[in-house]
Structure formats: C-alpha cells, structure tokens
C-alpha cells in the first residue's frame, strides 16, 4: 500500500518535471479537476508536487551553477587560443600557396567563431542569473573572469575589497613585492581584472585608482549579495555609475 503511494507520487513528480509541451489543446486545470475530483484537491496536489520538484531542482542547480559559468569561461579561453593558432597557421600556409584545404580551414575558423559568439552569449546569461549584481556592475564577461580567478562565488564573496581590486594582477603584484624586498622602487598594481571595465579604462590615469577602489568596494558587497540571496540591488549599480559620472566630469 505504502509502496503504491510512493510510486504514485514519484510518477507525478517526474511527469511534472517533464511537462514540456507545446501549447496544449486543453486547460491543465480542467484535466486536473477531472483527475483529482475537485479544484481544492487538484491545487493541493499540484502545490505539493511543485514544491517537491522545486526543492530537487534548486538543490541540483545551486551545486553546479558557478562551476558551470567558470567551465564555460575556460572553454572560451581554449577556443580563443585555438582560433588564434589556426588563423596564424592559415596565414603561413596561404603565404606559400592557396588551395582547397586553405578554404576548408577558413570555413572551420568561421564555425569556431560562431561557436565563440554562442559561448559568450551563454556566459552572459549564466552570469546574470547566478551573479546578478556583479554582472550588472561589470557586465557578464568581466564578472565571469573575476569569478574564475576567485575560484567560486563563495570564495569571491569572502574577499575584501582591496583584494577584489587586484584580482587578476597577482603576477605584477608579486613582481612588485619582490622588487621592494630587494629595496628597489616598485609600483603596487591598482587594478586587475576590473581594469578592463570602461568605467576605469576611459578615465584619465590619475583618477583610475579612485574609481577602481570605489568599484571594488561595491563589488565586494555585490559578491556577498549574489552569494547569499542572489537578488539584484539596483542602487548598487547606480552608485557605481554616479561615481563614474562624477569622476569623468570633474
């Protein structure tokens, strides 16, 4: 008896999860009421199942979503390498002789570039979903790079603003520290990954440090909100924009 119950409910869960239909010729509600006997019973079953399915799906998603973003970015990097390499080789070959095979190589490169566009689009979409605040401030591509360098959204959310500011500039930081140890003059890098952002890049040199510091402080908050609640806070983005406008005017 108990077994049957379990079976019925798990069947219901799986049919719920597979309810991918084109537009239905009937209203699910009408069918549901027929099957369950009354609207109350139908809604009660539907709600229970929806909650069960929702729990299963969120658990699965939460475990893998930042990994997915990071892996996509790594794949994109590899793809970029391949495209560059192929393009260089193709040039070399063409210099000697154009042939059927060089045309095929060109075709292949075009395909890889189309794939690259798709990957970039998917990265934007994924980032907007898993880190809406970081994405709104940085754009999906830079946000993904920051996430990749940090290793996970959890780790990123624990970084202080001063570290976020130079994530991606570790190499030059180590170099600078090595120089200083030897008593030589050195410049501490002011910005890492986030330096790619137009709000920093387009400012005059002497204002970039200020902007990077401000942005990093907001990013530290953004990373925490993204990690803990995942909800967009519009005011964070507008504060960064306002700071940029202020700095680019003055």
């Amino acid at each position: 008896m108990e077994n049957e119950d379990v079976k019925l409910s798990s069947d219901f869960v799986s049919s719920f999860m597979n309810a991918f239909n084109e537009e239905l010729p009937f209203n699910p509600f009408d069918l549901g009421v027929k099957v369950f006997g009354s609207p109350e019973k139908y809604y009660s079953a539907l709600r229970k199942t929806a909650i069960e399915v929702a729990r299963l799906k969120t658990e699965k998603e939460l475990k893998r979503e930042d990994r997915y973003g990071i892996m996509l970015l790594k794949a994109l990097d590899e793809l970029n390498n391949s495209i560059n390499l192929l393009e260089n080789k193709l040039e070399d070959v063409k210099e000697i002789k154009e042939s059927e095979i060089t045309k095929e190589m060109e075709e292949e490169i075009r395909r890889l570039k189309a794939l690259r566009r798709e990957l970039e689009g998917e990265i934007e979409r994924v980032m907007e979903k898993i880190a809406p605040n970081l994405s709104a401030i940085l754009g999906g591509a830079i946000a993904a790079r920051l996430l990749e360098k940090a290793g996970s959204l959890e780790k990123l959310s624990m970084l202080p603003a001063s570290t976020i500011q130079i994530v991606g500039a570790e190499k030059s930081l180590y170099k600078a520290m090595a120089r200083m140890k030897k008593g030589k003059p050195a410049k501490i890098p002011k910005h890492g990954v986030i330096f790619q952002h137009p709000f920093i890049r387009t400012l005059p040199k002497k204002k970039r440090g200020k902007m990077a510091r401000f942005m990093a402080a907001k990013l530290a908050i953004a990373a925490r909100i993204d990690y803990f609640t995942g909800e967009l806070r519009e005011e964070l983005v507008s504060e960064v924009r306002r700071k940029y406008e202020e700095l680019s005017r003055s």
């Binding site: 309810a19 084109e22 239905l24």
Partner: peptide, 9 residues
C-alpha cells in the same frame, strides 16, 4: 512551453 503543461489560463 516548458511550463505549459502546468500553468492554466
């Protein structure tokens, strides 16, 4: 279409 089997009019 992914939830049209669930959501009614």
């Amino acid at each position: 279409e992914r939830y049209s089997g669930i959501v009614e009019k």
